[in-house]
């Protein structure tokens, strides 16, 4: 699978042209088409709270604000010989994204992290969680390395690939291999649970580490066959903390993970590693979705 077309979802306050520029390196991996999507949340233009009517003037104003930004961005991309499309829709974010995915068939969705409050997320789920669960294609949750607000210059240059050996993780590996022209070096990690190491024998503990390391080395070899430099790392402990730690230690440009197959309710109340990292990490996160039937074949 190549990234020929990406869907760039923006509210303008989160993702702007600097973000988009940082992704243009993907042209080396076949990117040729960018589709912009701006969703004006229904609440902003509803006549009455919860009502069906729209304030026409407010809608026109917000659409034109988006249009002016998109025209400016599009001119830049057109001048590079790229193809550009745009949607400005009133509605609810995730369904509108899925509609654009259906219409445009992009290979990647790029979106900023969720702006919903913690309480709202708990009851209705975050946009990102919902999107991860429903999207048929990979999602890049973009971050500005929050504290200094700097956009990573080349997000795909040094990804940290966190694998749990699931079918979705293997799908993520496959996806990364297609990006060999943009990826400089991959750090591949697996986090072993502390529970697994509960043994009175040092030998047994070392054996587990060795097994994990061997699997990771095998995966590195696979990447090297695609001319991608890869390094293996075994971590022990809480996956969320350890993945974030590894991303810092190896100066990752993004974190790559396969998403889990937990149910909506389980994910909302118990959380998942993917969701937590996508929401909380300061690093951009590339999430490869779990798709029921297809993933079984891998």
């Amino acid at each position: 699978m190549k990234i020929k077309k990406l869907l760039f979802v923006t509210k303008f306050e989160d993702l702007c042209f600097d973000t988009l520029s940082s992704l243009l390196n993907l042209r080396k991996a076949d990117l040729e088409h960018v589709v912009f999507l701006n969703v004006i949340e229904r609440d902003k233009v509803a006549m009455h709270r919860g009502g069906d009517g729209f304030l026409k003037e407010e809608t026109v104003k917000l659409k034109e604000i988006a249009n002016i930004r998109f025209i400016d961005w599009a001119e830049n991309l057109f001048e590079m010989g790229m193809e550009v499309g745009a949607y400005m829709e009133v509605g609810t974010l995730v369904p509108q994204i899925l509609n654009a995915v259906e219409q445009e068939k992009p290979d990647l969705i790029v979106i900023g992290h969720s702006h919903k409050s913690v309480l709202k997320q708990l009851y209705s789920g975050s946009d990102i969680t919902e999107l991860i669960r429903r999207s048929p294609i990979p999602i890049l949750v973009f971050k500005h390395m929050e504290k200094n607000n700097i956009v990573p210059e080349e997000p795909f240059k040094n990804p940290l690939f966190a694998t749990n050996w699931s079918s979705t993780s293997m799908k993520a590996a496959k996806y990364l291999k297609t990006l060999k022209n943009v990826v400089g070096k991959i750090d591949i990690m697996h986090v072993t649970s502390e529970k697994k190491l509960k043994s009175s024998s040092t030998h047994d503990v070392q054996k587990i580490r060795k097994q994990e390391r061997k699997k990771l080395d095998g995966l590195c070899d696979d990447f090297e066959e695609y001319d991608i430099d890869a390094r293996a790392h075994v971590y022990i402990g809480d996956p969320v903390k350890e993945i974030e730690k590894a991303a810092h230690e190896y100066k990752a440009s993004m974190i790559v993970m396969g998403s889990s197959k937990k149910s909506e309710l389980a994910e909302r109340w118990m959380g998942s590693i993917t969701k937590t990292i996508a929401d909380k990490s300061i690093f951009p996160c590339l999430l490869i979705p779990y798709t029921k039937n297809k993933d079984k074949k891998i």
């Binding site: 499309g85 745009a86 654009a100």
Partner: peptide, 11 residues
């Protein structure tokens, strides 16, 4: 028009 969904006016 130029900037549209499902294929630009340029193409």
């Amino acid at each position: 028009d130029v900037l549209m969904p499902r294929g630009s006016g340029i193409q």
